[in-house]
Write a protein that binds this DNA or RNA. Sequence first.
RNA 1: GCCGAGGUGGCGAAAUGGUAUACGCACAUCACUUAAGAUGAUGCGCCGAAAGGCAUGUGGGUUCGAGUCCCACCCUCGGCACCA
Length: 805
Amino acid sequence: MPTKIYNPSKIEKKWQKWWETKKIYEVKDKVKGRENFYHLVMFPYPSGDIHIGHWYNFVGADVFARLKKMQGFNVLSPIGFDAFGLPAENAAIKRKIHPQAWTFKNIKKMQKQLRSIGAIYDWSREIITAEPEYYKWTQWMFLQLYKKGLAYRKKAKANWCNNCRTVLANEQVIEGKCERCDSITYQKEIDQWLFKITDYAERLLKDIEKLDWPEKTKIMQKNWIGRSEGWEIQFLIPNQEISISIFTTRPDTLFGSTYMVLAPEHPLVDKLTIEQKEKEVERYREKTKRKSELERIGAGLEKTGVFIGAYALNPVTNERIPIWISDYVLLGYGTGAIMAVPAHDQRDFEFAKKFNLLIREVVRGPKSGPLEKAWEGEGDLINSSWFTGMASGKAKDEIGEYLKKRGLARKKIYYRLRDWIVSRQRYWGAPIPIIYCQDCGIQPVPENKLPVKLPSLSNFKPAEDGRSPLARSKKFIQTKCPNCHGRAERETDTLDTFVDSSWYYLRYVDPRNHRHFAAKKKIESWLPVKMYVGGAEHTVLHLLYSRFFAKALNDAGFINFKEPFLALRHQGIILGPDNQKMSKSRGNVVDPDELVKKFGSDAVRLHLCFMGPYDQGGPWNPGGIIGISRFLNRVFNFANNFGKTIKNEEIKIDLSLFHQLIKKIGEDIESFHFNTAVSSLMQILNWLEEQKFVSREVLEIYLKLLSPFAPHLSEELWHHLGFKGSIHKEIWPKYDVSLIIKKEVQIVVQVNGKSRDVVTVPSGFSKDEIQKLAESEEKVKRYLTGKNIKKVFFVPDRLINFVIE
RNA sequence: GCCGAGGUGGCGAAAUGGUAUACGCACAUCACUUAAGAUGAUGCGCCGAAAGGCAUGUGGGUUCGAGUCCCACCCUCGGCACCA
């Protein structure tokens, strides 16, 4: 009799093909009796390879999607590619291959790799953001925001390499130097398009409360938006008609403000700097341009700055205080100027120490004696004239109100959030659909002229003047004004790829619609997304931008919801051998194809699920996958031998553990605790192998429990049992509540909190009964005899603790 | 620096404030085998002959009882607005 051998690569290919020809994963917009469930996983960037970090993301998401499907939902779980972006251009310049060719070659390879996962993707809904049918609608989105006044032009900073004459991404600046030519980079002001996300700051902050998102993600977004309530206060310049406006949340420390600091780029610096200081100030400003923001604001860094020779008046003390410039003050936050209170702000303290500026304590801290560092907490005011003795909290308002009466202050809310710069001086992106006419000014491209197609170029370096490579194409630039039909020029910048991904979830519900980004009916039947799965590294940018888009589209009447992703779960980040995030650009990726070849897709899936908590991630460690492989083999053998040795179904076996674990596996998948779910599957198998008799029903249930994790093997064994249909159309097993109640429990007996014994009793025993029993146990008696029992703690069905002298 | 997460056996890890180390890997011994592999059985935190004691990054605290709660510190990872 030939024994069947588990050959994963053979059966996996077989079933993948079968599923495809039977179209079992095809998603219909409406299925009778099934509620729609939109389950979204963050789409990959086509870097060239699906690495093990992608698998980790997709497998967990797929297990969850399969559970939802088996629970009776009509599940949409689509896939696509976030296909525009910088690496394609780098590849083009380095390897002389067109970004489009490079991107689509990668996509082809990755499609194949993705199929090997065996996920329930409906490939007929695939989207690729670099295709004109897609970016037509990205451009359309831009136009809607423009119409609503949410897109505008402004000068903004970009990294600039003077040698390459090009704008650089942050990633291309290595320690202040250009990645390609090693020359020092500058911050250069250029004309940019921005989205007014700050208009939505308050709503983005408020609506986040309602979302079923990880608490840490919500906190990070809130901190990113950074609402702070405070006061805007005017510091007058003696003998001049101007004043410097500052923002502070601590007016209570105003008496301790002994100098001011402006951002080097602050517009008043030119007006205020005295002649003798001009050269020094100019030199400092030049130096600042070479620093990135991160290099400027670090508190541990040595403070730098220049006194500009001018003074302002402290509005409460009327002292003349010196005005400095320093790069630790940023123009982009608050008013770009601060009142420095060295005794109560650590960065001001470091600055004052370095330049020997006056430090005056005005809030009583916990320590007395000379200050070693700033006291940033609250307390009673000291050295504050008639406010001395008042508590900080009260003094904030009192001092604010006092200045308000004199017209020197007003209450103000500031946000840390800044508007979103969406223009890029690059080739591989969606062209911004704007036309510049000498007579009519800025003109949006009419919607019926979309898409503005990306021309095919051969040189992808930005133009010498820093403009986008598109500026090289005369054919592209020259056009007619949609308003006066005279000669006009196209915008040559392209859109940030985050714009593409801010709305992609909308396109999946109706990916081939030529007349609209999606039909209203389909939007309403699927959206918003019920579960979104992706990396925690997207917490503040992609996830915030998408929320902003949804709100703006809702305001414009295009969609009927205000939040795109009702629930969100993160997979942890898989680290490469260098202990850093796995990514193609770092060159530390681990290719799963070899593992799939060796152990099979199901084994890789199980291993990724079993490795550890899904949201934790950590260094990639293939050790242990052999254990998974053994486990699957045992399942295969158990199920195959089942038919031969069976089985008297009348013999009753204790199913309580089985039903407890059915419950646990369902709950674990629902809560993304895949590792403990897999461990439960192993426990069931251990239990099954111990049983003398197992009914066919138990085996069928077991295969269903396994099917979200090992879709291929479970399908194979399902068919061995004689079924003709797919196991993936089955309903998730229910557990029997009456069977999961424990009849016997083990009670831990502690003396003074130390475990001394365990007694097994029927569940529901009373405190008195258990106390009596425990006191009679030899191991416990030993500790109790001759001692006075002060107190007895009892936790029903769990524990009893004797507290003795 | 700022915001967020994590630190438990040799390793991946488990644990509603209630027996720390489930499940798996590695390792050891045994069985089967000519052998290797595969498979199966048993053992496996540390100290100790045992009784018992000690162990969840470090130091303190709360509690009858702390991996879990609070405070301080150390280390690792993610994000910081043009990588996606």
